[in-house]
Design a protein around this nucleic acid. Structure first.
Lengths: 351, 351
DNA sequence: GTGAAAGCGCTAACAT
DNA sequence: ATGTTAGCGCTTTCAC
């Protein structure tokens, strides 16, 4: 204990020196109890007498003791940590979800580790990090895994919930909007409004959301005897969508209706159409987005969009993850939530 | 080892059962070496012969071994984790910073733990979490600490970098824009454009950014012989700013120029002015924001704003934090970066 | 109710 | 270069 003595006499006084924190042993010594008594005292179901509880808390407060959760994790084999993996936070749809998830897990007494999946890179490095840090569950924000990657985690009984992407195998939970019907509605609505040349602005190539929305859009057109006039890709990003919009609208026979795979891109189309091509929206160009981010409702944009129930989605996803963490027998679920058309000024009124 | 035997014969085969992960001991046994050899093999400066390295890696790959970083953290007393604490991610200014920070720390081999500071609540709970989880550094996104709270962390030699808030004491680093001069410029610009009634839309009450921008604004007005006509508060949030804008513009003598403490609020003012009060911007109402988020530059908004160098800010902050983590002797710095006026259509042209 | 003792999975001396 | 040993700070039997 001489070591701790030196800590208290000079370690705290001088700045800059790397010192170890207060341990349960220090508290035990000051309180005159055993180290295990201190440990019990900081456990939820403390079997300690009121008298010792007092002594220990007093000593703990004096020393500024906080249980080291790393040591706790090692012995209990539970990190009390969940991971959130994301691609990009440019879309407020995802930053909102992250914020909600963060608050939710924090309330549940869990820590949240954040992992960024770089667009180009493989996600294997992220998976490695997830396993090394022993997270107890993973929330994937618009991240796809193949079956093998998912198995790496689920084999270690680390549950996964994927938001806004669908995968073809079981074993992971997923929560997403009804992309197909969203696309379908967009097509039917545009046809009903009397448009002729329908373009699709895709999100990220090969993502389930983008593909399903496109498939629904094409099916919706087909059922009205119409077909896709043109398409381009905007990677779900504003800047890329701006470039795509310019390409689409520069055509000698440009589309008169564009369905974009998310609002961010739809708004880029709107900016380009109005301010670069001087088209009136919706008379000369109708635009529909997806997500219904708050900006879509701003009167300047008045973007018709398919609202994804973001509050519901993140709540279902986080609760599902917690359930699976607490009971590993829980069957992973595939939840598909309805999307709701929000008709605004970026599409013509019917008739 | 009988335990591990049962693990391998049935644990992996059956699903749903909670099993422990592969440890360095398992790998050692399979490779026919000591456990410490395995440990060395996964350390940066491995002093192992090529032969054993091969054997170990082969065994590790076979078993799917990954070092348990919790155990490593316990012995090395370093969690390889930094924390980011935020209030809200509604403003893309912060979600962008978070994304950048996440990628930066990940590249440096650090984990990132995310903590949400609830608006009303004290952040003592967050501080408790930071200490318990033994983070090695803390990035505060627009979070203020008082001296005592900061000392809790710095006494444990956990460096803190505060972004976009300033505090009056030393011991923590801070990176922010030059709020005062930003406000000063806004005032001078509005006066030069010929406006008469100047309103300030404050951010969150008592935050350094909001106060400094207001003080600069008032000083800028005063130097032109003008003064503040009215002010209101929007809590840095879109919705609250919308309400504030309605209050300001409903006055019998409404302002003809509003300086908002951030772009999100400025855009709310713009929406209300144009679409609810049918005012032309900038002829009847000039608007200036702060931050220069991407949306500000969209032609529909063309918001004059004071650009904060977000890329620079987050880079300086993260690098500073890493420096302080690696060398505890590093003196905390207070960095104030210049803000750059971006003149756009929401203010009249001069003369 | 309380303490002694045995680890959790790893790293880091210290021998060899 | 490799193995042996002693912990990191905590939780959790197990006696008492």
């Amino acid at each position: 204990m001489e070591w701790n003595h030196s800590l208290n006499t000079q370690g705290l006084a001088r700045g800059g020196m790397k010192k170890r924190g207060v341990t349960s042993k220090d508290v035990a010594k000051l309180a005159g109890v055993s180290q295990s008594a201190v440990s019990r005292c900081f456990s939820p179901h403390a079997k300690v007498s009121e008298a010792t509880r007092q002594k220990i808390h007093k000593a703990a407060r004096e020393l500024g003791y906080r249980p080291n959760s790393i040591a706790r994790s090692l012995i209990t084999r539970s990190s009390q940590t969940v991971a959130v993996v994301f691609q990009s936070l440019e879309n407020p749809f995802y930053s909102t979800m992250l914020e909600r998830a963060s608050r939710f897990f924090q309330e549940q007494g869990y820590f949240l580790q954040l992992f960024a999946a770089s667009p180009g890179d493989s996600i294997d490095d992220v998976i490695d990090g997830l396993i090394r840090s022993q997270v107890e569950g993973v929330l994937m924000l618009a991240i796809t895994l193949d079956a093998e990657q998912a198995a790496m985690l689920t084999d270690l009984s680390i549950p996964i919930v994927i938001i806004n992407r669908t995968v073809a195998y079981d074993g992971v939970s997923q929560v997403s909007g009804d992309n197909f019907h969203g696309g379908y509605w967009a097509a039917q609505h545009l046809v009903r409004c009397g448009h002729q040349r329908f373009a699709y602005l895709a999100g990220l190539d090969g993502t389930s959301t983008s593909d399903q929305r496109r498939d629904g859009f094409i099916a919706g057109l087909a059922d009205k005897g119409a077909e896709l006039h043109s398409q381009d890709i905007g990677n779900y990003r504003y800047d890329d969508a701006l470039l795509a919009a310019r390409r689409l609208l520069s055509s000698s026979t440009p589309p008169d209706a564009i369905f974009a795979a998310n609002d961010l891109m739809a708004l880029a189309v709107m900016e380009a159409a109005r301010h670069e091509f001087h088209l009136s929206v919706p008379e000369e160009l109708a635009i529909i987005g997806f997500d219904d981010v708050p900006m879509a409702a701003w009167p300047s944009h008045a973007l018709t969009s398919l609202a994804q129930p973001v509050t519901d989605m993140i709540a279902r996803a986080t609760e599902l993850l917690m359930t699976q963490i607490h009971d590993p027998e829980t069957i992973p679920q595939h939840i598909k939530l309805p999307v709701v058309p929000m008709v605004r000024g970026s599409t013509r009124s019917l008739r």
